[in-house]
Simulated assay, not measured.
Amino acid sequence: MTRKLISIVTPCYNEEANIDELCQRINDVMSKLDYDYEHVFIDNCSTDGSIPKLRAIAAQDKRVKIILNARNFGHIRSPYHALLQVKGDACVLIASDLQDPPEMIEEFVKKWEAGFKTVLAVKPESEESPVMFFLRKTYYRFVSRISEVPLVQNATGAGLFDRAVLDILKKVDDPYPYFRGLLCEIGFPIATVPFKQPRRQRGITKNNFYTLYDIAMLGITNHSKVPLRLMVMGGGLLALVSLLMAFCFFVAKIIFWDSFQMGIAPLLISLFFFSSVQILFLGMLGEYIGSVHTQVRNMPLVVEAERVNFD
């Protein structure tokens, strides 16, 4: 009887120091399981020695496959593209920085064998900066509350996805997806595997303020209309308050014509306040328009420069 195939996808960008250990630990885990496996690296145009190292590993082990991107397409599009290329009965997505321990794959598979089509790693604890961990938890709690579907809080993105889930994702045809949100929108029950995220041991994180802001806004604009509704209600409320304040000032001036002086300070304060609110609303509206623009352009997720060990 032919054994089932599990595809393992690892997005990679300048992770030369972690590749060898990652491959070895995944091989050790998969040797304990009664499944065949393929390990697909998708490299986002690394500038260090990652690509030569991947080529050397792939030359020795045909189960290791490589997709080389023509340029850096970002941390959102690249792994999603790789997920859609695999042929396994299930696919495991795991980062190359070793902060999602490969040993979790065994727990993922157990949940899959129990009937779950989607399994996600969640980190209720982390050795990262306490400030960053607090901000992440606060964000996920906020997005989950305003989202049209409940999201899995503290999910890292690592997990296992059944072939049925991957086939649905292929039909979605989203050029800039919020992957964790899509998994929840599909609707299959989601199992979670909690773990304490270790601190990165080698290399430096590729996330910065812009990339974190990008994925944060993507989660909001792709899965919630609440900010747009709040802008409408907030604008109406501010207009009502302004009208009431104007009426009060008018009455005060009529009653105390000679002694009441409104002064320049209230005018300046209200001018700056309403101007900042308008800029905030326009910026939020721009995020939604930008999301629509991305969908309308319908560009490919990535452009591949080369594939290695693919049939």
Rank of each mutant, 00 (worst) to 15 (best):
L218P: 01
L218V: 05
G219F: 06
I220L: 01
I220G: 10
I220H: 02
T221K: 01
N222L: 06
N222H: 09
S224R: 00
K225D: 15
K225M: 13
K225H: 14
V226L: 11
L228G: 07
R229V: 05
R229N: 08
L230S: 06
L230F: 08
M233H: 11
G234W: 07
G235W: 08
G235E: 12
G235Y: 02
G235P: 00
G236Q: 11
G236F: 01
L237D: 09
A239V: 06
L240V: 10
L240I: 10
V241S: 01
S242H: 08
L243S: 13
L243K: 02
M245Y: 06
M245F: 04
A246H: 03
A246E: 12
F247D: 05
F247I: 09
C248M: 06
F249W: 13
F250E: 13
F250A: 14
A252G: 00
K253L: 05
K253S: 11
I254S: 04
I254E: 05
I254W: 08
I255A: 07
I255G: 06
W257Y: 13
D258F: 14
S259F: 12
F260P: 03
Q261E: 15
Q261W: 03
M262R: 12
M262G: 02
M262E: 12
I264S: 09
I264M: 12
A265C: 00
P266A: 02
L267P: 00
L268S: 02
I269L: 13
S270H: 07
S270P: 00
S270F: 10
L271A: 14
F272T: 09
F272I: 14
S276T: 08
S276P: 01
S276W: 07
V277C: 12
V277T: 06
V277N: 06
Q278T: 15
L280Q: 10
G283H: 03
L285N: 14
G286P: 03
G286R: 02
E287C: 05
I289M: 11
G290C: 07
G290F: 01
V292T: 12
T294G: 01
T294R: 14
N298I: 08
M299P: 00
L301W: 03
